[in-house]
Simulated assay, not measured.
Amino acid sequence: MRGIRPWIKVIPAIVVVAALAGIQLSHLLGNNGPQAAEYPRFTLVDQRGHTVTEADFRGRFLLVYFGYTYCPDVCPTSLSTMAGALYRLGTRADAIQTAMITVDPDRDPPSVLGEYVVSFWPGMVGLGGSPEQVAEAARQFAVVYTRNGDGDDYTMDHSAFLYLMAPDGRLALTIPHGTPAEALARLLAEQVP
């Protein structure tokens, strides 16, 4: 029994990691995993404390990433890749609003989000809100996330896609984590006039 007890604490994390890997693989293979809404809806709070919805971004492309500011590796990599792709687009990047929606609203208040996201790309918007608001936004995009660990020193396991919403609010692209900046720039260029 003594040898089993440490594994009991690890099993939920293994299950979550396996589920996230399965979702990522499902999207890559084009299988029917969790499906994002065709027109994702959300009500969140931006880094200035203003309530915003998806309608506030209509008329422009919106490139969305779900992550969190305490993320040690995946989020900074994804946001750096996003910035690299936008840099490659030159002035065409002006047609794209970028946003990160936190999956950790307890540690990512608006002011923290604002400072974090603009360190990757000027004009990027940090979006958060109540745990319920974040959960509903994540559901709209078929994002899966869960807290891993106890106390204040925890991580958030989460799916790591980029989502491009068209100016009419339609979900135009779902881009897997690990897509190089050059490839992401080409994908965006195919959508952005």
Rank of each mutant, 00 (worst) to 15 (best):
L79N: 08
Y68E: 04
Q47E: 15
H27A: 13
V143H: 12
G123R: 02
T146W: 10
E132C: 07
L29R: 13
V52M: 00
T98R: 03
A55V: 07
M100G: 04
L25R: 12
P72H: 11
G84F: 07
P72M: 09
L79Y: 00
V118E: 14
E115F: 08
A85P: 05
G129Q: 02
G30D: 10
M100W: 01
P72C: 10
Q133I: 04
L63S: 04
G84L: 07
G59C: 14
A18V: 12
A95T: 08
V103L: 03
C71D: 14
G128S: 08
Y65L: 04
Y145R: 01
P105K: 03
V52S: 01
V118T: 15
Q140D: 08
T77Y: 09
H27C: 09
R92D: 13
G84H: 05
E115K: 11
Y68P: 01
S111H: 11
D46L: 10
P105W: 00
A99Q: 03
Y65H: 12
A85W: 08
P105H: 04
S119D: 14
S130Y: 00
G49T: 06
P76V: 08
A37L: 11
Y116F: 06
V134R: 05
G67E: 03
A55H: 08
L89N: 02
D94Q: 13
T81R: 06
G90F: 00
M100L: 09
W121T: 13
D56Q: 10
T102N: 00
A19E: 10
G114M: 02
T43P: 02
V74I: 15
H27E: 12
R92H: 12
R48P: 05
V125Q: 13
R92C: 05
V118W: 04
V134C: 01
P105F: 03
I23R: 11
R58N: 11
A93T: 05
T43K: 05
H50R: 13
Y68C: 04
E132S: 13
T51D: 09
A36Y: 10
Y68S: 07
V74S: 02
G67Y: 10
L62T: 02
Y68W: 08
H27T: 14
P131M: 02
R58K: 14
G49N: 06
G59E: 07
V112K: 06
R88M: 13
Y65D: 04
V64E: 00
V117F: 00
Q97S: 11
L127I: 07
G128H: 02
